[in-house]
Design a protein around this nucleic acid. Structure first.
Lengths: 365, 365
DNA sequence: TTTGTTTAACAAATCGATTTAGTAGAGCCA
DNA sequence: TGGCTCTACTAAATCGATTTGTTAAACAAA
C-alpha cells in the first residue's frame, strides 16, 4: 500500500502549467481553463481573447496535467484489461479492444494473472487504486462484483454488474460435430479444456448435449482432459500421447482450441499417423496461424477481434449512460473448413484470416 | 487537447479519504500520512498509535488516491509500451516487460501504432500527457528524443536519451548462412524485410556482409523484398509466389522472420515443392509456434522474453539512478535446427521453446 | 439619475494526498 | 524559575487543474 521505490523524478521536466500560461497572458487560470475546455461559461469571452489563449497555449506547448485534471474531475479515461497471458487469442481480442478505446480517448492497463487466484483477486484492486473507470476481463474467473463496470469475455458466471460477452457454444458444437459426422466420423475423441479456463465448462456441456441430441456416443475413453494451460502448443501434445497410449481407436479429434489442436497434430504425426487421412482434427478459435499450418486447420471460428470491439463498446456505453447494461451479449461462431478434416484432393488454398474457406462438403469421405 | 466525453462518474464510488480516516481516528491527516508511508518523520510516533492507524486503515479499507499522490509526488509508476501491432513477437517481449515492471509496482500502457507515422509521433506525446515515467518502444522508428527515458527494442537509430536493446545481427547472419552452407546450399533466396520494420536495414546489411565474407554470392534475382507488414503469415506468401514466377532456381530460403517463413512454406507447398527436400527454409525469431509447425522451423532464435526483461530492467535502472544509461545493450542469437532444413531421417522431436534442438549436422544433404 | 442586464473576467474552494516547519507539553537539570 | 531537549503531534503550503460565485465596468431602459 505504501511501497515507495527510491528517487527518480523524471516526471518533473513537464512544460508550463495552467498558472504559468495564465500569467504569461495576463489572465487568470480560471479564464484560461474555461476557454481551453470550451466550457459553456466561456461564451461571454470575446473571440479575440479566446484566440489569444489558444495561440499562447500552442506557442508555449501547454499540456494539461492529466493527474491534476483527473483528481478534480474524477474521470481517468482508463480501462483495465485482465487476461491470463498474452496468447494469440488474447492478442486478437486486445487489438479489438484497443481500437475502440483509443477512438474515444481512453487508454488501458493490461495485466496477466497467469491463472494465479491471488493475482485474479489482487489485480482488480490495483486497477481500482489506479482509478480505472471500468474493467474488461478475458478468460478470467472473477469471484465477485467490483465497484465499477465490468465486461467479461468468455466469463460465464452470473455476477451483478458484469456483462458477459459469450460465444454461442451450442451452435459451435453443432457446427463441429455436424461437420465431423457428415464426413463419416463416429469414433471421435474430445479434449476437455483445462479447469482454469472459464470457457471449459460451458463448452463441454454444450458438446455433451449436442452429441446426445445427434445420437453420437461419447466414449469415456476418448474424452481427455487438458491438465495445464499455456499459450503454446505443448498444451495438446501430451494429451494425445495419453490418448494413443490407451489404445482406444478414433478417427477424429475435436480439440479445445487451435493451439491444443496444433500440439495434437504434432503428436499424431510423431506417432506415425496422418492428418486428416488417419485422424481428422478440428480446432477452435481460428487464430491467424490456423490457416497457415500444415495441414491447415479446420476450426470453429470465434470472431475474436469483433468480440474485443463489442466488449469495449459495451463498456464505454455503460460508462456513458451510467447504466448497468445488458447481462449478456452473444456472438455467433462459424465453421471454417480446411485441410485437417478434408482429404488432399478436396482442399483449397487458405486465404488467411479474413477469407475462410467455406466450401463445406456434404459427402462423407 | 480538451476532448471531453460526456457524463459517467464511475470513479466516484471511492472509499474513505485520508482526511476521513484521520477524522475517524481523531488525528490529523499529516500524522496518518506519515505513518502509512513509514516516513522517517514517523519515528517519534509511538508504536501504539501506529498500530491504531494501521488497524483503522484496514478496517475502513483505506486506499490512497493514486492521482492525488502522483500529483504531489510527481511519480506515476507508469511506463508506456509502444509497438506496431500485437504479434507473437510483440506478445513475448511484452510478457518479459510486464514481469519486470510488476515486480517493482509499475503498470504500463500499451499502444499499437500500426506503422502509421502520425501515430508514432502522437503516441509518445499522449503518453507524456499521462505522465509515464519512461517509454519502451518495440520495432518502432522514433524520430527524436523525448523528455523522459526511452528504451528501444530493435530500434537502431542513435538518438540521445534512447537505449537500444539489439540483437547481434552479424552473428545471426553467420549462424544462418553457416548452417545453410554446411548443408550444401549455394543458391539461397533472401527475404528483405518490410521498410517499416526497424530491424530490416541492419539485418540486411549484416547478411550482405557475412555472405561476402563467406564467399557466397547473393543473386539479385533471389533477393526479394517484403512489401507490407502484418503479424500474420500472409506476409511471406506472395513474396515466394513472385520468386517462383521469376523462374530463378534456389535450394534454400532465409526468411525475414518466422511468420514470413511460415507463409513461405505454405506458398512453396502450394506450388508442389517439398520443404526441406526441395527448398530448405530458415526463419528468424523462434516464436513459440515455430517448433510446432509442419515442418518445424529451423530458425535464428532471439531471446524475446529475455529482451523484454532487459528492456524493462534497463529502464527502471535509469529511472532509479536518474542516469542516461547505456547507449546499447546487445543480446546473442542462437541457431535452432529443426525439420525445415534437415531431411526427415535426421530430424528429432521438437521440444517447445525452451528445449531447442541443437544437434547441428555437419554433412551436407 | 436610478435600476437592471450583459460582458469580461477573477477569487477562492476543491479534488486527496505529501511534506516542511512548527508548537504544546512533559521531563530533566541547574 | 528559566532554559533546554524530547516527544507527539499539527497547520498549512503545495501539486495543477476545474468550477462556482462574485464583481467591476459598460450599456440600456425607465
Amino acid at each position: 500500500m505504501s511501497r515507495q521505490p527510491p528517487g527518480g523524478k523524471s516526471t518533473k521536466n513537464r512544460g508550463v502549467s495552467l498558472k504559468a500560461l495564465a500569467e504569461h497572458l495576463g489572465l487568470s487560470p480560471a479564464t484560461v481553463s474555461l476557454v481551453m475546455n470550451r466550457a459553456p461559461a466561456a461564451a461571454s469571452i470575446p473571440d479575440e481573447t479566446q484566440q489569444r489563449i489558444f495561440r499562447a497555449a500552442k506557442e508555449l506547448n501547454y499540456r494539461p496535467n492529466f493527474y491534476a485534471r483527473s483528481l478534480r474531475t474524477q474521470r481517468s479515461f482508463m480501462i483495465g484489461v485482465l487476461h491470463p497471458d498474452l496468447s494469440d487469442y488474447v492478442a486478437l481480442l486486445t487489438s479489438g479492444i484497443e481500437d475502440q478505446l483509443t477512438r474515444e480517448g481512453y487508454f488501458y492497463f493490461a495485466a496477466g494473472h497467469r491463472n494465479n487466484p491471488e493475482l485474479i483477486e489482487e489485480y482488480p484492486m490495483l486497477m481500482m487504486d489506479r482509478s480505472v473507470e471500468g474493467l474488461i476481463t478475458i478468460d478470467t474467473p472473477l469471484q465477485h462484483s467490483l465497484p465499477f463496470p465490468v465486461v467479461s469475455i468468455s466469463g460465464h458466471r452470473n455476477i451483478p454488474g458484469v456483462t458477459n460477452v459469450v460465444l454461442d457454444h451450442r451452435r459451435a458444437a453443432e457446427l463441429a460435430l455436424g461437420h465431423l459426422m457428415r464426413m463419416g466420423h463416429r469414433e471421435i475423441a474430445f479434449f476437455k479444456g483445462p479447469k482454469v479456463s472459464s470457457d471449459t465448462e460451458e463448452r463441454w456441456r454444450s458438446i455433451c448435449e449436442v452429441a446426445g441430441r445427434m445420437g453420437l456416443e461419447m466414449k469415456p475413453g476418448l474424452c481427455v482432459e487438458i491438465e495445464f494451460s499455456t499459450p503454446f502448443p505443448d498444451m495438446g501434445y501430451p494429451v494425445v500421447q495419453r490418448l494413443l497410449a490407451s489404445g482406444e481407436r478414433f478417427t477424429a479429434l475435436f480439440a479445445f482450441n487451435d493451439v491444443s489442436a496444433i500440439g495434437a497434430v504434432r503428436a499424431l504425426r510423431d506417432a506415425g499417423l496422418r492428418v486428416p487421412e488417419d485422424v481428422a482434427v478440428v480446432g477452435f478459435d481460428d487464430i491467424p496461424s490456423a490457416a497457415y499450418h500444415t495441414p491447415s486447420l479446420t476450426t470453429i471460428r470465434q470472431p475474436l477481434r469483433r468480440m474485443g470491439e463489442i466488449a469495449a463498446q459495451t463498456l464505454l456505453e455503460r460508462l456513458r449512460k451510467n447504466s448497468p447494461g445488458p447481462k449478456e451479449v452473444a456472438v455467433e461462431p462459424e465453421l471454417v473448413i480446411r485441410e485437417s478434416t478434408t482429404s488432399r484432393l478436396q482442399r483449397s488454398t487458405p486465404r488467411g484470416i479474413d477469407g475462410p474457406v467455406q466450401n463445406e462438403l456434404s459427402q462423407p469421405v
